[in-house]
């Protein structure tokens, strides 16, 4: 299948007091047509920054994209002018954010905020845009969309707000939907509803999705492929089944072992990974996970591991095969 988005060697850093914080360090990933890519990692691992860098929605300054390409529809998004990029945002790439409360403008009605992209990108009249926005609201399961259009964000519940946010992202029928931890701020039952909704929408509309999350169990039923990130690096990449069946990076193994599993007969203690992810004020000279790793060998401190093929479509950035404990 054709790639709809292909990101290569993306590097983003932020100016901080006395230097730089290297948030994204040569990240590459691709999304093909109709595919849902899950990007997984702890807070601060650079997953949101990577994706927000593609549409340049990180604050610049202090942010700075220092390297990389992001090919989307035959163009490199990172080289577009602000004006060209704004024609892509909202029209070809829809965004859903983590906090539906703060991501909506409190002083504009939901309807107004939903119709804006239509007026800007498709030149629709107010009536046409209203009709389309109502259609989308009912598609995401908001009852009485005509009346709710006049409401303001604070009159919606959290789940409804996130539904409206998804409707807003999809209003111009984008080819790619980027969802940045869209369920993190919601109750568990609402999370499940949102995931079900997105699966339905994906089937009906056929868009590709990048779903950023720290919740491996939530993404399991949703994504086709997973990218695991750590300290601004992609450390493992695999189709969902292969990743869960054969995690090949110690960090991914740690993440999976920290989840309870239904198919286990006996109770076991959930594992945790000792230590904290690093904040990189300079680029590391070795594997960024080495200080927390059980399988560490001498080479890990010397060289940043490259993404090595584990099996077909499955790559991991580790000098050691954690199953055999032998160097690759």
């Amino acid at each position: 299948m054709d790639d709809i988005l292909n990101v290569q060697n993306l590097e983003t850093r932020f100016k901080v007091k006395g230097g730089w914080n290297h948030a994204v360090n040569g990240v590459s990933f691709r999304v093909s047509e109709g595919e849902t890519l899950g990007i997984v990692g702890e807070s601060g691992c650079g997953k949101s920054v990577s994706v927000m860098s593609i549409t340049r929605l990180i604050p610049i300054p202090p942010g700075q994209i220092t390297a990389g390409t992001a090919m989307f529809g035959g163009r490199d998004l990172l080289k577009l002018s602000d004006q060209e990029l704004s024609k892509v945002r909202g029209a070809e790439i829809g965004m859903v954010y983590q906090e539906p409360m703060t991501a909506f403008n409190p002083v504009l009605s939901i309807g107004r905020q939903l119709t804006e992209p239509l007026e800007v990108h498709q030149g629709l009249t107010r009536q046409q845009a209203n009709a389309r926005a109502e259609e989308l609201l009912s598609l995401v399961g908001i009852p009485n969309p005509k009346e709710r259009m006049r409401d303001y964000p604070h009159q919606f519940s959290g789940g409804m707000r996130q539904r409206a946010m998804i409707a807003m992202a999809l209003v111009c029928s984008p080819k790619l939907l980027i969802a940045d931890e869209p369920t993190t701020a919601l109750d568990v039952t609402i999370q499940a509803q949102i995931v079900r909704l997105v699966k339905e929408l994906r089937q009906q509309l056929g868009m590709s999705i990048i779903w950023i999350t720290h919740d491996l169990s939530l993404i399991a039923g949703l994504a086709h492929r997973i990218v695991v990130m750590y300290a601004g690096y992609v450390i493992e990449e695999a189709p969902i089944k292969k990743l869960y069946a054969n995690p090949s990076h110690p960090y991914t193994m740690g993440l999976l072992n920290s989840l309870p599993r239904l198919d286990e007969s006996e109770h076991r203690r959930l594992e945790s990974i000792d230590g904290l992810p690093p904040i990189l004020h300079k680029k590391p000279s070795g594997c960024p996970f080495a200080p927390r790793c059980r399988f560490v060998v001498e080479r890990c401190h010397r060289e940043v591991p490259a993404l090595l093929t584990v099996e077909e479509d499955h790559r991991a950035a580790c000098w050691v095969n954690p199953h055999t404990r032998r160097e690759r």
């Binding site: 892509v88 945002r89 909202g90 965004m95 703060t102 800007v120 990108h121 807003m168």
Partner: peptide, 18 residues
Amino acid sequence: IHKDYVRTARGKGLPEKM
């Protein structure tokens, strides 16, 4: 200017003036 909803507005592709 640093609020989330301003980022949302940019993410929708609105011209900076708007």
